[in-house]
């Protein structure tokens, strides 16, 4: 145990936790904004995956990391719009629509990857770009704190700003008020002339943008290539984080951090003598435990109410 603590209580570990929280936070914000509008986005996992590939492809062919990022966001937006079309317009079941989108992403990314590189595993042969790391002046020189909060990928900072932005939009603006009203009492919103469909579409599109940035981080920040299935359940973990955060920005962010720590732990523990296979399941176990704790608490609360 001694050595475990030694590993965890280091600036390195905190740094790595922030790093792996980034894609989770993006996806969880996507889950949050769509859920608050009453249009759950179950397709986050697939959207992230497609955006991750898009980032690699766009940046490789333009040799511009910025265009790669924009490409990833665009693909996220388009995919979420497609999901919105099916669920809002054609009344496809939200869950089945999400499942289908994930199938689509799984197959579609490998298809495109193979078509472009002749490889079904990774995009190693594509000369894609990565997004830069940012060293914050002054803070970077502060011991420990500087080591932890400075030097992250630009998207990590954007994720934090996004969380604040989502909070701001939901709490302070008319759009946010409408999103929340549509999610909580559709009829009330309708009775004062709010266009429910439009608001839900906007919310789903925004969730696509966030998932898109999450995907871009995976392939253009976390690592510098695309590999099949690289979203690795983060879209699902994000749904759990949003549920545990009870739909609030702060709660969702904290739950994301919790799962991020579990993820970082699984990376770090590999240094110890524990089988890697078992360590890797840590984030998933944490998610199940978290989700169950949340569900049990909710059930008890309901029962207490009678």
């Amino acid at each position: 145990m001694r050595s475990l603590l030694d590993i965890i209580l280091t600036p390195d570990f905190a740094f790595s936790a922030i790093r792996v929280t980034t894609p989770l936070l993006f996806a969880a914000l996507g889950a949050l904004i769509s859920d608050r509008a009453g249009a759950a986005n179950i397709g986050l996992e697939g959207i992230m995956l497609m955006a991750a590939l898009a980032g690699v492809v766009f940046s490789a062919y333009t040799q511009s990391a910025l265009i790669g990022l924009l490409g990833a966001i665009l693909i996220g937006l388009l995919t979420a719009s497609m999901l919105a079309y099916f669920t809002l317009k054609l009344k496809t079941d939200v869950i089945l629509g999400g499942i289908a989108l994930n199938f689509f992403a799984n197959g579609g990314t490998i298809f495109v990857l193979y078509y472009l590189t002749g490889d079904k595993g990774t995009s190693a042969s594509l000369a894609s770009m990565v997004l830069p790391n940012i060293h914050i002046p002054v803070i970077r020189n502060i011991p420990i704190l500087g080591e932890i909060v400075s030097g992250h990928n630009v998207l990590t900072y954007i994720a934090i700003l996004s969380a604040i932005g989502v909070w701001y939009v939901l709490e302070k603006t008319a759009l946010g008020l409408r999103i929340r009203s549509v999610g909580e009492n559709e009829n009330a919103a309708k009775s004062v002339g709010v266009n429910v469909m439009k608001i839900r579409y906007i919310a789903l599109a925004l969730s696509g943008v966030f998932a898109g940035m999450g995907g871009a981080f995976l392939s253009m920040g976390y690592v510098s290539w695309f590999s099949r299935g690289m979203s690795a359940g983060r879209g699902w973990i994000a749904l759990a984080a949003e549920a545990m955060g009870r739909g609030t920005v702060l709660g969702t962010t904290l739950s994301s951090v919790l799962f991020g720590v579990a993820d970082a732990l699984s990376n770090t523990l590999q240094l110890l003598n524990i089988p890697a296979e078992l360590i890797r399941i840590l984030p998933y176990v944490a998610t199940v435990v978290g989700l169950l704790a949340y569900a049990i608490r909710e059930t008890n609360k309901r029962k207490a109410k009678g």
């Binding site: 690795a232 699902w236 759990a240 296979e277 399941i281 176990v285 569900a295 049990i296 059930t299």
Partner: peptide, 29 residues
Amino acid sequence: FKAKWNASELVISLMFNSIFYGIGLYILN
């Protein structure tokens, strides 16, 4: 979990897939 506490069967089942894949891999290796 679903029947008693209404825990999302979709998310839990997907997490279980990853968990038991990991455990299986460990046993095998």
